[in-house]
């Protein structure tokens, strides 16, 4: 693997499958009395979160701690950043503290890339979500969840499996990372949403697109529902929430049209009643809670593969 994980596109198929296989071994750790491995003893992982995200931050924190790393949480609110410190000065501070890895969540697309390639820090950089750009560890945990349900027993893993990603693709870093990674793993991706919520330039993504959820659902092996990110919306992307959920929400009636083995996913946080109804979210098909469990194993795998060996010892 490369020294940083900035984009799902950084991963070759071999890299991605190594992460999935490593995560599969690490997942059994949750069943043991001592949920800790010594691989990153003496390493320091900094969680640098410029945007609120309890879910991703505690997932990374649990992952790093289970590998015996020291974890420093740096939330921008109430910190020197709110006093006007730049990303560069924050980075230099972290460097001076001896961080071996920086897990960064930032509202600006490209901030992790800047941090990794600016020469401000020598540590590995892991993108934990940047703006509307990418969220590669979410894509890896989604791929891992898909793989456990649809690929583990098969030759070729996820090769040829069909996945629909439904909803607010425009504002979703999860959708972009997932589309890239699932392609790498050989799956076929269909992005579904109203025309206003599919990004410009989507022709270049090498995925199918559709405006018609009902036509797509019976054909797919997995449905991934995205949250409508109203905090990023200024202006009318759809007339009313009610009309949106009628056309693009997953409810019991639509769920009945799925194939028997099809699973329902959601990266969270869910808005019940908007993109997904409660009966679907709580149904047997839903693997949403499992996605959270898998998130810790996948992030452990990423941190181990980036920091566990010798390559990160010698800065480029």
């Amino acid at each position: 693997m490369k020294r940083h994980l900035l984009s799902a596109a950084d991963l070759t198929r071999d890299d991605a499958e190594l992460v999935l296989e490593t995560a599969a071994e690490l997942r059994s750790l949750a069943d043991r009395p001592i949920k800790k491995l010594p691989a990153l003893r003496g390493r320091t992982v900094v969680n640098l979160f410029f945007e609120d995200s309890t879910r991703t931050r505690i997932s990374f924190e649990a992952a790093a701690k289970r590998l015996s790393a020291d974890v420093i949480n740096f939330a921008a609110k109430g910190s020197s950043v709110s006093k006007g410190e730049s990303l560069k000065d924050t980075a230099l501070t972290l460097e001076a503290m001896g961080a071996d890895a920086v897990v960064i969540r930032h509202g600006a697309s490209g901030a992790p890339h800047r941090l990794a390639h600016s020469g401000w820090v020598r540590s590995s950089v892991v993108n934990a979500g940047d703006g509307t750009h990418e969220h590669p560890t979410q894509a890896l945990l989604d791929a891992f969840t898909l793989w456990r349900h649809l690929g583990e027993e098969r030759r070729g893993g996820l090769e040829g499996r069909r996945v629909a990603i439904v909803g607010d693709v425009l504002h979703s870093r999860v959708a972009r990372s997932n589309a890239l990674l699932l392609k790498t793993l050989g799956a076929e991706v269909t992005l579904v949403g109203p025309p206003t919520l599919l990004p410009v330039g989507i022709e270049g993504w090498d995925v199918e697109t559709s405006y018609d959820l009902d036509a797509v659902l019976p054909k797919v092996d997995a449905v991934m529902m995205l949250r409508v990110q109203r905090e990023r919306m200024q202006g009318g992307f759809f007339p009313t929430p009610r009309e949106y959920s009628r056309r693009y929400g997953l409810d019991g009636r639509r769920m009945a049209t799925l194939q028997d083995h099809t699973i329902v996913m959601h990266p969270g946080p869910m808005v019940r009643g908007m993109e997904i109804t409660a009966d679907v979210a709580d149904s047997d098909r839903s693997v949403i809670v499992e996605q959270v469990t898998n998130g810790v194993a996948v992030r452990m795998a990423v941190l181990y593969l980036l920091l566990g060996g010798s390559e990160s010892e010698s800065p480029e």
Binding site: T22, L26, S310
Partner: peptide, 8 residues
């Protein structure tokens, strides 16, 4: 730490 990260 002496070699690149190994597969588990």
């Amino acid at each position: 730490r002496l070699k690149p990260a190994r597969a588990l």
